[in-house]
Amino acid sequence: MELLKPAVGLLFWMVVVFAVLVFLMKKFAWSGIISALKEREGEIESALKMAEETRAEMAKLKSDNEKLIADARKERDQIIKEAKEVADKMVADAKENAIVQGNKIMADAREAMAQEKTKMMSQIRKDVATISLEIAEKVLRKELSDKSKQESFVDELLGDVKLN
């Protein structure tokens, strides 16, 4: 069949033209296009990688910040707690001190009172003794002069005596 017989002339031109075409296309088109495509893909890839790295860095920074904030908060809480403790301690100390002081004052006062009382009692005792002696003296003296008068006198004297 005519169609299945390759024409020699066309075959010749096809081989020549196609070989030249393949060569020219490779030299002036494909090598440039392929390398440009590859280069651009490399750029895109590195850009994506950088974005990923930046994102990771941002996340790290953020977590660092959060950690810092948390640390600061903890420290603040610690300080407040310590201050409260100190204040509480101071108040408690003051209270205790006051109680001790009060007790001491009371004890001193009580002691002083007791001393005063003993002093007073001894004074009273001494006074009673003196007065009794005086009365006895006077009674003795009166008795010596008038019996009735002595008795009324004793009554009178007794009325005068006021135990304080």
Partner: peptide, 19 residues
Amino acid sequence: VASLLLSAVLLILIFTAVK
């Protein structure tokens, strides 16, 4: 053959433009 040459020229023109 003319068509072959034409297509070769077209291809070179198109793809050098792409490049």
